[in-house]
Design a protein around this nucleic acid. Structure first.
Lengths: 219, 219
DNA sequence: GATTGACAACATACCCATCAGTATGTTTCT
DNA sequence: AGAAACATACTGATGGGTATGTTGTCAATC
């Protein structure tokens, strides 16, 4: 009822807050970021934030939710396809690895929070919200787990312990978050190439030696 | 000159502070940890901390230094050996992966800080201290890089981009920090077995397919 | 079509708890 | 006695949260 007409709407206001929060959480971590920081990052004040989000932890949760939404959307098409395990994994992995490169802000904010939960216990925000997020994360991992399991049973993968293999593969695909610095002149093609190399290594780690990828995949 | 005699010295006082700091930084992150938290964790007060360390960031730096010292000590024997590239990598990787499991507190504190630097820029502590740490970290990575390069040139590894392969391998070996929860009944043997599975996957990711490890390594 | 009023969408100003750092004791050993 | 090894008490600044003010927009009414 109060859409800013059709002036020159850059982006919806709540999403601007989310973007600013993601950027700040990425740069300085959740605890290290003040709401004044977030507000300053978008040229506003705290009033703007509290108008849309009830608290700091709620804002974090919204950022995480947004990030997870992106992640699910990225791999779902491949997951729902009827490809064979190895090829399905390749498609999902490629989409995910590429996604990690492209949405660094949200993903780093998410992983920073995730890291603290795993390691610490009951910190970093409301517990109910955190639990909800853990459930999402679990569902996401299970999509990959399914494919690994299917591939193991069909003999296409050579996996010893599913859990270890799953974490290793996902960690590999996520690894760009920890070392890839976005260049100013990097094209979409570059990013896809990086993702593809990671996918190849992940596939080899899973023991899927018997496939030469035909150079082009999931165009 | 002031060693606490030979009473029942559990541990040197400064190291107690380091341990407490590492534990707190692991649980709640650097920014999320107050020095009162650290003090409370060892049943003392801030006076104790400031008696040995000049500031919070200096304390963080000491924790990182300590962690890096452990890391170097873990892989140096294998690095200085005259093993062939693949076997040298296996030995280094095994030692490192095991080390990550055993020294979780220091390592998580270290990686939390590392993560913020990579992603953020000039935060999380004094910049000179941070630069010193980055140098250490670089030197550590280079030890693995050397072995990868040697293995690539000798044809023992099948690596496309050294940098990507290096990060993938290290990330895999570090990955336990993000998912392995130390059980109460886990023996040293268990930990070594987990490490070994990761090493095998890392080796396969590096294209070192042509070796069946003879079940026992670096005893 | 001008007026009004109600509400969204913020900004400003303020409150209070927390926290890094300091200044000053107090104890214990040598 | 003097210094190491702390504890206690305090300070200034920061930050999450709140309370209140201000502005623009739209819809009903006149």
């Amino acid at each position: 009822m109060n859409l800013p007409a059709a002036h020159k709407t850059a982006k919806a206001a709540p999403e601007q807050v989310l973007d600013a929060a993601a950027a700040c959480f990425m740069e300085k971590g959740y605890a290290g970021t003040s709401l004044d920081d977030v507000a300053r990052h978008m040229g506003a004040t705290k009033g703007r934030i509290y108008h849309y989000f009830g608290s700091k932890s709620e804002l974090l949760h919204a950022v995480r939710k947004h990030a997870m939404g992106i992640n699910f959307a990225a791999i779902r098409p491949a997951y729902n396809s009827d490809l064979a395990p190895v090829e399905k994994f390749r498609a999902m992995a490629q989409a995910h690895a590429y996604n990690m490169i492209k949405e660094q802000a949200y993903q780093k904010a998410l992983f920073g929070s995730l890291h603290l939960h795993i390691t610490g216990g009951k910190n970093a925000g409301n517990d109910a919200l955190m639990q909800d997020f853990i459930t999402d994360r679990r569902a996401f991992e299970d999509m990959f787990r399914d494919v690994l399991q299917a591939g193991q049973e069909s003999g296409d993968f050579d996996i010893k312990t599913i859990s270890y293999a799953l974490h290793t593969a996902l960690t590999t695909l996520n690894s760009t978050l920890y070392w890839y610095t976005p260049r100013d002149g990097d094209t979409d093609k570059d990013r896809r190439a990086v993702a593809q190399e990671l996918v190849e290594m992940a596939l080899r780690a899973l023991g899927a030696c018997h496939n030469q990828n035909p150079k082009g995949n999931t165009p």
